[in-house]
Design a protein around this nucleic acid. Structure first.
Lengths: 338, 338
DNA sequence: TTTGATACTGAAATCGATTTCACTTACAGG
DNA sequence: CCTGTAAGTGAAATCGATTTCAGTATCAAA
């Protein structure tokens, strides 16, 4: 069933059918009725591809994620779908599985008129990325990393990590370990580590390289790095750069017969959904990932509507969640002295 | 840049450009070179929308999910993306946020030539769903629920739940509670409950309605239902129909000063990624959701290739994970008698 | 030299919509 | 009665590709 068939059945021209479908132009009442009747009876739905071609708008936005089966990514995507729905847009999702070449490939592919805009959850952003993205002419917004020249939706990773360390220091810890991640991911790998180092310096604490471990994003990696830290030093607290890392670390500690937080405190970053149900409930910082997605989408649609790209930087709120996995050494001492 | 421009630059017709792009038909060596040179120089990428229109193939499949920010859904989608990539297909994802009317809407919308096939993670499947889906002519596969007349990728929920109950019974439990979910979701709400009831009967245990609670899919709901169970009866074990429910239940038990599994055992179903890192590590059954997604996608592509729909039923493997949240009463008694 | 393949090419039709443009009709105002 | 404007309509062009089809060139076999 195409528009021509409907036209024939209703005894009008395709142009008239188009006019009633899109509610523009003049159509006499009786013809409109006739067309509507036919449409209803045959359940006509226009071919969206043909519409896209003619209108030069696909009503789709592309979303490039490093790994969709990740709590962070799926929450961001959740947010995007929510505002996309309001704008009557669909999402094309491209899952790169952490392969950077794929990002480039998808960036190219999606921009071939397939989508009206792109939201990219960047991990590493290479020069090639930037150059390509800049040449694309359709709106692109970055989520999770600030990228020069693009609208970027980020969390204030530096401040978040800093506040977490502050809390740990305020609890009386002096030997504070760190479990991080490859610096190629600047938001997670670089910024959070820098905050750790800076804050320690500011507090007059020395930074002990033996108390720093670098892993990847897996729980197992958190376990391994914690084990390594244990052999190299004697931290009373460690901050992990993600909750998964923290959970791995806690697991390792338990396996070594150590209590968290009584023997060693552990803090995460990210506030995974189940974090508060752990024992001990994980002290961490909550990032509004769904909000990031929503804000990113709003920016894309703004840019689509205004037909021009800009490069804002939006910082999304976070909230430090003080739970039970970081012990307050001072009150512990008080308790013991009784 | 369109094909006509490339043609002009290379001094050939659009037809020839098309022939070199798609590598079919005859093109003289020198012209081919010329065209390729121009393509390379201007970085020409064809308009995918125009291709789709002409070819009557969008190279996109639609994926309808109840909620993307859910571990189950995102793992399924992960699997789909993996095999879609092999077939050079993109995913359009539609997130219904658990609203059934949205499922219908998206089913209609996506099928307007926008996608070559649809994968649907069904929760409730109404008669309207079936009728509409049946009328669509493009391949549709259902994941998670068996639906008459459609290829369905399911887990053997009945057997999985049954084995879990078996394990609990084998551990010497007699008062076994159950936390379930609305029966509108037949796989999770009906089948798993039926397995529980059947197995209890078979084992000569009576089914105590006071020990059955029905909630929704949230952790909080698990907490609440557990609390209700506690006031109504005295279970020594409870099986929850999802891990989240189980986690909520455990949390409730802890809040009431009860130890899991020493005072009450709790089992889940689903094996959430973090399940094994809980304390106690959750006894549950692992479903291969990513595999479901992959198999679903493979079936869609088969059907697309053969240009005909079928209605297989594929049962994906599961694995019961015996961890620490269900206590063996017999060994406990032995221990006490020492 | 003629015939018949085979290689090669581009004009034009096509996919299914939208929109411009030219044209008709109806009607109010002078 | 004439005229100008608004309402209404459909033929045809258009979006950017692919493919058929008709036609040309080349060359081996008869």
């Amino acid at each position: 069933m195409k528009i021509k068939d409907i036209a024939k059945l209703a005894g009008v021209s395709p142009a008239t059918v188009s006019r009633v479908m899109n509610n523009n132009g003049y159509v006499k009442h009786d013809k409109r009725q006739a067309v509507e009747k036919v449409i209803r009876e045959v359940g006509y739905q226009p071919n969206e591809i043909a519409k896209s071609l003619k209108n030069q708008k696909s009503h789709m936005i592309g979303v490039i994620v490093p790994k969709i089966s990740t709590e962070t990514a799926s929450r961001v995507v959740d947010g995007i779908t929510e505002v996309a729905k309001q704008h009557n847009y669909q999402l094309i999702i491209a899952n790169t599985n952490l392969q950077i070449e794929e990002e480039i490939k998808y960036l190219k592919f999606l921009s071939n008129k397939l989508v009206d805009g792109i939201i990219m959850m960047a991990t590493e952003v290479t020069a090639e990325h930037k150059k390509l993205a800049q040449s694309l002419a359709i709106p692109i917004v970055m989520v999770g990393q600030q990228v020069e020249g693009f609208t970027s939706i980020v969390h204030d990773d530096y401040r978040a990590a800093k506040l977490m360390i502050d809390h740990i220091i305020a609890c009386g810890h002096k030997n504070i370990g760190f479990i991080g991640v490859d610096p190629k991911d600047v938001a997670v790998g670089q910024v959070r580590k820098q905050a750790y180092i800076d804050r320690l310096h500011e507090a007059g604490l020395s930074v002990d390289l033996d108390l720093i471990g670098i892993g990847d994003f897996s729980i197992e990696s958190g376990y391994k790095q914690m084990e390594a830290l244990l052999t190299r030093g004697k931290p009373t607290a460690v901050m992990a750069v993600t909750d998964h890392l923290a959970i791995g670390a806690i697991h390792c500690l338990h396996d070594h017969g150590l209590s968290v937080p009584n023997d060693v405190s552990v803090a995460g970053l990210g506030d995974v959904k189940l974090a508060k149900y752990f024992s001990p409930p994980l002290t961490t910082v909550h990032y509004g990932f769904k909000t990031s997605g929503m804000v990113a989408a709003e920016h894309v649609f703004d840019m689509i509507k205004q037909n021009q790209v800009d490069s804002d930087k939006v910082v999304i709120d976070f909230e430090v969640k003080i739970r039970k996995s970081v012990a307050n050494l001072k009150t512990m001492r008080d308790l013991q002295s009784l």
